[in-house]
């Protein structure tokens, strides 16, 4: 009896705790999480740990440790810039899903979307989310611009970040517009026809640019391939670069503007 009491079998809870301890002491764990990471040392609420959450994680690339008190007020920013970025991420995720089921050729495109909607699990839902999310992003980027203007947030030292913002708005429109053609239905074809006809009116290079974009004088299968590449690789690539500069400049220019 006494022997049993001296050496009690460890309970499941104790064993789990021990495994957790071993795991957190392992080289692999410590190579993943930086010194000071809350995943190394645990989190209890203290000003120091609040700083560590940002400082010792990848979030430090996006956020400073502290922000102005008025900057966290939803009534000031309406979250519009952040939501635009979040919608971009959401669109990337749903877009990658759609890419698995889509071939950008005149013969296959429409049928692939039709099949996606009727035969692929969650295909219709994901396509809907991609479509509505895209419209929502155009809207939120636009509203973000209006918000920034009305707060006078484009004034020195943020002039250049406003210019980058206008570029981002243009790129958002281009992303949406190039995606518009891809379902290859009547709506897509003729909306893009109308849109690109407008482009042809530009002086000097209008028609040349239009020719390069369409891969011919009229929209066809070549256009579909070009716009697909623009939509899934080129414009996302460019917009990510400008977004990185945009976010970096927000911090370098002294954080968010205001208070009014």
């Amino acid at each position: 009896m006494a022997k049993v009491l001296d050496n009690p079998r460890p309970t499941a809870k104790e064993r789990l705790a021990k495994i957790g301890e071993q795991m957190q002491g392992s080289q692999a764990w410590n190579s993943i999480f930086r010194p000071g990471s809350i995943f190394r040392k645990g989190y209890t609420d203290s000003p120091r740990n609040r700083s560590y959450v940002i400082m010792n994680s990848v979030l430090y690339h996006l956020h400073p440790v502290k922000v102005k008190r008025h900057a966290v007020k939803v009534s000031y920013t309406l979250c519009l810039g952040g939501l635009s970025f979040f919608l971009f991420i959401l669109l990337t995720v749903t877009g990658i899903f759609l890419m698995f089921f889509y071939r950008p050729t005149g013969a296959n495109a429409w049928q692939d979307i039709q099949t996606l909607q009727t035969s692929v699990t969650f295909g219709l839902l994901v396509r809907n989310m991609h479509r509505w999310g895209a419209h929502l992003m155009v809207l939120s980027v636009f509203l973000h611009m209006a918000r920034v203007f009305y707060h006078g947030a484009y004034k020195p030292p943020r002039e250049f970040n406003w210019v980058i913002g206008v570029i981002l708005l243009t790129l958002t429109l281009l992303l949406s517009f190039t995606g518009y053609l891809l379902p290859w239905d009547q709506l897509a074809l003729w909306a893009v026809t109308v849109g690109t006809n407008m482009m042809g009116y530009s002086p000097l290079v209008g028609n040349q640019v239009r020719f390069v974009l369409l891969g011919g004088v009229e929209i066809g299968s070549e256009t579909l391939l070009r716009w697909y590449v623009l939509h899934v690789i080129m414009f996302p690539f460019i917009i990510i670069i400008f977004m990185a500069i945009h976010f970096w400049r927000v911090r370098k220019d002294g954080g968010i503007s205001g208070p009014l």
Binding site: L90, G106, W110, Q111, I113, Q114, Q117, L124, L125, R127, N128, M129, H130, R131, W132, G133, H135, L136, S176, F177, Y180, P183, W184, D185, Q186, L187, A188, L189, W190, A191, T193, V194, G195, M198, E218
Partner: peptide
């Protein structure tokens, strides 16, 4: 976005047809 996409479907009209111009033809909004 999830609920909205659940309730409202994105449009998918007839396959693209160069010989049938819809009336009116409109650009994206």
């Amino acid at each position: 976005l999830f609920v909205f996409s659940w309730v409202v479907n994105a449009p998918l009209l007839q396959a693209a047809d160069f010989n049938k111009t819809p009336n009116p033809s409109k650009a994206p909004w």
